[in-house]
Simulated scan of single mutants.
Amino acid sequence: MDIPTDTPPTPAPADDARPTTTEQKRTARGATRPGDRIFLGLSRGSGIALLAIMAAVAAFLAYRSSVALADNTGNFFTTFEWDPAGISSDGKPVFGIAVLVFGTIVSSIIALVIAVPVAIGIALFISHYAPRQLATPIAFVIDLLAAVPSIVYGLWGAIVVAPNLTGLYSWLDDYFGWTGIFEYEGGAPRSLMTVGILLAIMILPIITNVSREVFLQVPKMHEEAAIALGATRWEVIRMSVLPFGRSGIISASMLGLGRALGETIAVATVLSPAFLIKASVLDYGGGTFAQNIASKFSEADEYGRDALIASGLVLFVITLLVNGAARMIIARRKEYSGANA
């Protein structure tokens, strides 16, 4: 008698026994175990708490700003004057942020233009050119520079940097003064250009550290493939490293821009504030939101503080817009980052 050797097929599970989509998602998230559920709840609660705190800050700024703007006799966005006490206008408060917006944006752009190329070059040198014996000390020194307090940078900028920029400003005036942007009339170089140079030095460690860590995450397979095709070291960096780290470089730049926008003490130390907008970035004058708040808050009355809070609300909105724009850029270019490779 022959014994059948074929194994009967395993019956398919009933539809009721199959895991549902919701159960699969919960299993994938690890939310079926008590510890994971607790961690998920804490993480979700932290995110909600952060959003609530930001909403509370925005509501406070908006309320105090509305009190000041209700009595402002000038145009808040176009007035070139800051006089909430009404000393020059018979007790009628007049204040605007035109000069502050200009100074904040111009000084931050100068800082980024100077700092980003230098930071990327340092990060590439540490991650792909320097030997380990040299790269480690350089990275350590850059980490220390990121921890230096703002007041130290401000004092160094006022005592050392600003007095020694006269020669550079004269050179810029000789060769590029015809543009009007680099026209220099002499005097103490406490201008938006000085502020931008100091801010560039301050944000350089942040951009360098983040860019370096991104460059170190480049898959070795990408670099080895480029080398196998006969690429030089620079071609490897251009074809593999920079495309992979593009979104990281943008993120690092936005982190540096965030510090540049909100820097207070260092800017107040090196800048000669004046509510004037000049075409030349080498002339004295100008101001930033943070510097104006820091210099005027202690001597302002309650209404003057509300006016300063109104300017702080604008800085809050600008910071949110900058970070939102950075997230949009990163989301659009994530296919070039190599994250999905």
Score class of each variant (00 low, 15 high):
A225F: 01
L216E: 15
G256V: 08
K220E: 08
F215H: 01
R212F: 14
R246E: 00
F215G: 00
V214I: 15
T232E: 01
F244H: 02
P243I: 04
W234E: 01
I227V: 05
T232P: 04
V214P: 07
I227P: 00
G248H: 11
E213S: 14
E224V: 12
R238F: 09
F244W: 04
L255R: 05
P219Q: 15
V214E: 13
V210F: 15
A228D: 10
E235S: 03
L216C: 12
E223M: 12
S251Q: 03
L216H: 13
V210S: 13
S253V: 02
R212H: 14
E235P: 02
M254R: 04
H222D: 08
W234F: 03
H222V: 05
P243L: 05
G248W: 11
N209T: 13
S253D: 00
P243Y: 08
G256W: 06
S247W: 11
T232Q: 02
K220S: 07
N209E: 13
N209R: 15
E213I: 11
V218H: 07
S211M: 12
R238S: 09
M239I: 07
I227E: 04
A228H: 10
G256K: 02
V236T: 03
T232L: 05
M254T: 09
I227W: 03
L242C: 05
V210Y: 14
Q217C: 11
P219L: 15
S253I: 00
I249P: 04
E224L: 14
S253C: 01
L229C: 09
R212M: 13
T232M: 00
K220L: 07
T232G: 06
M254C: 06
A225G: 04
V241I: 13
S240A: 03
F215A: 06
M254N: 04
F244G: 01
L229T: 05
G230L: 02
H222N: 04
S247T: 14
A228F: 11
E223P: 02
I227R: 01
A231K: 04
M239D: 09
A252N: 09
S247D: 10
E224M: 13
W234H: 01
M221V: 14
M221T: 14
V241T: 12
V210I: 15
H222W: 09
V218L: 02
R233W: 05
A228Y: 11
A252W: 10
R238E: 07
R238L: 10
G256R: 06
L229D: 08
W234K: 01
R212E: 14
M239K: 10
F244V: 03
W234G: 02
A231G: 02
S247L: 10
E223R: 11
W234I: 01
L242F: 09
P243W: 05
A225N: 01
G256E: 03
A252C: 07
T232K: 04
I237Q: 09
A231D: 03
L216A: 15
L242R: 05
I249F: 02
V241H: 11
M221D: 15
I237G: 06
I250P: 01
F244I: 01
L255E: 05
A225L: 00
I237E: 07
G248R: 10
I250F: 09
H222K: 08
M221H: 14
L229H: 10
K220T: 08
P243T: 01
M221S: 15
M221E: 15
A226G: 06
I237H: 07
P219T: 14
K220P: 00
A226N: 08
R238H: 07
L255C: 06
M239Q: 09
V241W: 11
E224N: 13
I237V: 11
M221A: 15
R233T: 05
